[in-house]
Write a protein that binds this DNA or RNA. Structure first.
Length: 460
RNA sequence: GGAGAGAUGACCGAGCGGCCGAAGGUGCGCGAUUGGAAGUCGCGUGUACUCCUAAAGGGUACCGAGGGUUCAAAUCCCUCUCUCUCCGCCA
């Protein structure tokens, strides 16, 4: 395993940044929307940015961003010059003047006013285009992240436990849920629509137990616990990197409100410190939040949509961390290790996957997924249960979250997120891996104290 | 949902259309005084972008947001948002 410094040096080489210090201070991640620094990074590292876009199979025009950026700067300089003239002119007539001089100055002021208005209009146009193009540029990817297009190219880096072996024909969680009266999809479809579900009986307590187990674990590791709102403002969604609008958006928007149902507590936890300057000594800030998650999953029909795997609403315990830039790689590993610990503790077999560049979301610099063994999924398959991303300063720039460094300058923090427990998927893994020959389900030992029972059997 | 009040720097709080990036106070930092502390006194203390090789020093913008009036707006006008108080409703 490379040390952080070695990695940084490598990054700096790749991106042709002059030295590690500058990389850390100015632009450990590339894209911003509202401040010039990002554009500056894109301009100064154009080739690397373009290569990154290509490796992520995304549509973005870095060349156009640079030319718009240059145009914007030229206009801005001209505008500032004219404003300076205006201010000087106005200042020069605050005292007594003879009428003719005053009239002349007022005339000059009127002309300046028109010039400025014209420049402002052009600048606004260029900035709007720049913003629109800049928005499309994704975060840089970690040098070690596997290059590839789709999930097939993800790299398995670890396996814990082996796929469960049964002495009988295992059922899937849909069948188990029906036979044991734990999950009701049919009624939910009638009442709420497809991809909704009722949890019933022990499943309700199992979900609560999963939440309690995760919260207890995170509290012991220094996380501050939250139960967050399930709704957030659009601007926060966008800051985190979600696109609330558009046909392929996965987000439910609230009519007439400029707010959305959250798809993850990453949004509300990341928004928690938006617009603030954090005390350096308080970093890293580790938050854990329980929330409901709402996802439209439009167009995700088909055989994989059956059951709890892909649903419109579920409960999740999420980890979110604000760190110093130089600590984010190490923190990312810590988050992954916590996820591994949670699933190891429960005794669920899983593997860890290093997500390839083409499969990373735009904000992510690197992402690891935990995939649990799901015996009922296509006769046994790995299914994603958690995910942890290091988004470096991509989100921090958009949400304007900084810390005051020792040199007195305010710098962007790095933000990371990770799933502790996504209840619906954890329940699949438990039901399917812990089913027994007689059709009952054993509860993982670590959950028994939170559940209050150790087995789920057929009723009556 | 009804009625009223308000939004200024880390915080409190002034502010006449030009001398306001913004008085005063608190807090914070540095220094002096003290055996030490309190107290007192002095100095300093926003953000972003930009010019300059760098430093020093300039410039532009920001007084909830957006628009308007004006040669000139924290200050005048309009719209919106948010906050607070009271009433109603309510898990």
């Amino acid at each position: 395993m490379k040390t952080h410094c070695q990695r940084l040096a490598l990054i700096c080489t790749i991106y042709k940044v002059r030295d590690t210090k500058e990389y850390l201070q100015e632009s450990s991640a590339p894209v911003i929307i509202l401040t010039m620094l990002d554009y500056k990074f894109i301009k100064e590292n154009l080739e690397a940015v373009k290569q990154n876009i290509a490796e992520r199979y995304m549509q973005a025009d870095a060349d156009r961003v640079v030319s718009l950026y240059d145009e914007r700067n030229t206009l801005l300089r001209e505008l500032e010059e004219q404003r300076k003239n205006r201010n000087e002119n106005a200042l020069s007539m605050k005292g007594k003047l003879d009428p003719e001089t005053r009239a002349a100055k007022i005339e000059e002021g009127k002309q300046l006013k028109e010039k400025i208005a014209a420049l402002e209009a052009r600048l606004a146009e260029v900035e709007a285009q720049l913003h629109a193009e800049g928005m499309r540029i994704p975060n840089m990817a970690h040098p070690d992240a596997p290059r590839g297009k789709e999930d097939k190219d993800n790299l398995e880096i670890k396996r814990v436990g082996a796929p469960t072996v049964f002495s009988f024909e295992p059922k899937d969680h849909v069948q188990l849920g029906q036979e044991l009266d734990l999950i009701d999809f049919d009624t939910a479809t009638r009442v709420s629509g497809t991809k909704f579900y009722y949890l019933k009986n022990e499943a309700v307590l199992l979900e609560m137990a999963l939440v309690r187990f995760a919260l207890e674990k995170l509290r012991s590791k220094g996380f501050t616990l939250f139960e967050t709102p399930d709704i957030a403002r659009t601007e926060i969604l966008e800051g985190i990197g979600f696109n609330p609008r558009g046909a392929e958006s996965n987000v439910y928007t609230i009519e007439g409100e400029d707010t959305c149902l959250i798809g993850t507590a990453e949004i509300t936890l990341g928004g928690y410190h938006s617009g603030s300057i954090l005390e350096k000594s308080t970093l890293p800030l580790k938050l854990a939040g329980v929330s409901h998650c709402f996802r439209r999953e439009a167009g995700a029909a088909g055989q994989f949509s059956k059951g709890l795997y892909r649903v419109h609403q579920f409960t999740k315990v999420e980890m979110f961390v604000y760190t110093l830039p130089e600590d984010s790689d190490a923190m990312h590993e810590q988050l992954r290790l916590i996820e591994e610990e949670i699933f190891s503790d429960m005794g669920i077999p899983f593997r860890v996957v290093d997500t390839c560049t083409g499969d990373l979301g735009a904000p992510a610099y690197r992402k690891w997924d935990l995939e649990a063994w799901m015996p009922g999924r296509n006769n046994g398959e790995w299914g994603e249960v958690t995910s942890t991303s290091n988004c470096t300063d991509f989100q921090a720039r958009r949400l304007n979250v900084k810390f005051k460094d020792d040199d007195g300058k305010n710098k962007y923090v790095h933000m990371l997120n990770g799933t502790a427990i996504a209840c619906s998927r954890a329940i699949i893994a438990i039901m399917e891996n812990f089913q027994q020959a007689d059709g009952s389900i054993r509860i993982p030992d670590v959950l028994v104290p939170f559940c209050g029972f150790s087995e789920i059997r057929r009723k009556g």
